[in-house]
Design a protein around this nucleic acid. Sequence first.
DNA 1: CGGAGAGTTTTGTCCTGACATATGGTCACT
DNA 2: AGTGACCATATGTCAGGACAAAACTCTCCG
Lengths: 246, 246
Amino acid sequence: MAATLNIPIDRSSPVPLYHQVVQGIEGMIRNGALEPGSKLENEIELAAQLNLSRPTMRKAMDELVRSGLLVRKRGVGTQVVASQVRRHLELSSLFDDLARGGKKPTTRVLSFRHGPAEAEVADTLQLPAGVGVYHFTRLRAVDSKPLALMENWVRDDIAELTEGGLREHGMYQILRDAGVNFRLANQRIGAAVADERQAELLEVARGSALVTMERTAVDDAGRRVETGRHVYRADSYSFEMTLVQR
Amino acid sequence: MAATLNIPIDRSSPVPLYHQVVQGIEGMIRNGALEPGSKLENEIELAAQLNLSRPTMRKAMDELVRSGLLVRKRGVGTQVVASQVRRHLELSSLFDDLARGGKKPTTRVLSFRHGPAEAEVADTLQLPAGVGVYHFTRLRAVDSKPLALMENWVRDDIAELTEGGLREHGMYQILRDAGVNFRLANQRIGAAVADERQAELLEVARGSALVTMERTAVDDAGRRVETGRHVYRADSYSFEMTLVQR
DNA sequence: CGGAGAGTTTTGTCCTGACATATGGTCACT
DNA sequence: AGTGACCATATGTCAGGACAAAACTCTCCG
């Protein structure tokens, strides 16, 4: 039995129609109205039900297929894959992640410098001549349990950073508020063992396992805005993601 | 100066037109014909140059934007972001990755069992009653240097696995040859320190850092085919990826 | 009774056309 | 000289139609 959709479409909303459909189907999957494995009506029929054109319907389903919620097979139909799809790794900060999870992250700024960049950093960020960097290290804790030790370099010609601001807000939020639109980031995840200093700050034994992450973020103008090296307590943090075959 | 495209389009090819464009632009970026930061002609003009419709051109550019090679800004235009974009984390096996990189991976099968599943595995794989699993551990090495220790569970009602087959081929290749089409995988990356046994097998000191990965893969019929726990030597392996803001 | 072929269904690709909207620059007015 | 309104430009969204290709089903023939 093929499932039909019951999604309110508001044509006067600024939200694109195809995105309303995406949200609608996502909602139906999460609340169980569409069970994993169930088959959807065909695209033409669904489009007709919602009074949309097929390309619009298809664009919505494209997104859902890409995010891994639906599976299409030519000549057969479209199926719900799983209700338990973790969101793809996002281009967001640890601070935002924690805050969304209802936690109250606190930040201690361990060091804060502003000046010319070392050669390696200037190279990584592809800094133009004369542009300096903010260089700072932070310790992030949740419920007074230390979680991450973060070292970052941010070019100084885009936004003004202050030690106080970093204590109160996530770095990404500050940069976004300053008009930076992040577009992509290159990221590398690995592992290391805690040295003396890391162990003390993160309140773990020396030699404990740490998750390491290096990231360089690029904004919509193609500028490399930020690069950083983070280490996380392995007993409290890991990276989850859903990979989708294309 | 806006760049124009010079891409051969073969309308009789079975490769979709939009994909030919994707490959063409990708090629021009990689070989330097399109420099990072350079601006492309507008969509309508590019479509006209290649004798394509705008939707087709747009679909091609959509893919490139999603993969992080291009950046679009409404009212402004489309720019090349970077030549150095790592491929997105793929749904493939370590074996394939290494083989593509020109390496010769070798596999030692440490244990191989076939029988009913433990409750936890049956739950993770959502096994129907009566379906058993293959359970095996493998040690993968490159140039006789051990790299990864892998423990996997595969449901036994889809393909027949043998110890000899696993020695010769990657697990994913065997399953694909058996007609399994993987669609998505949930994956978690973390860190740990090597215990006595891991240290010995991977030829590192006890207490060395290891990258851990747990993965469960789902095929196009929605079946959870495989789950596994892998550990990698942190000094030779890390996960690289490009995140794209949507 | 079994297998090959035809037909149906459904997604995949591609086209033309239209209007909306954000951005950046220009020009006139203050 | 500064500022606001206007306009050109380019991407964003949406419609409707057409044909291709894959996968399943059913029928017919051996």
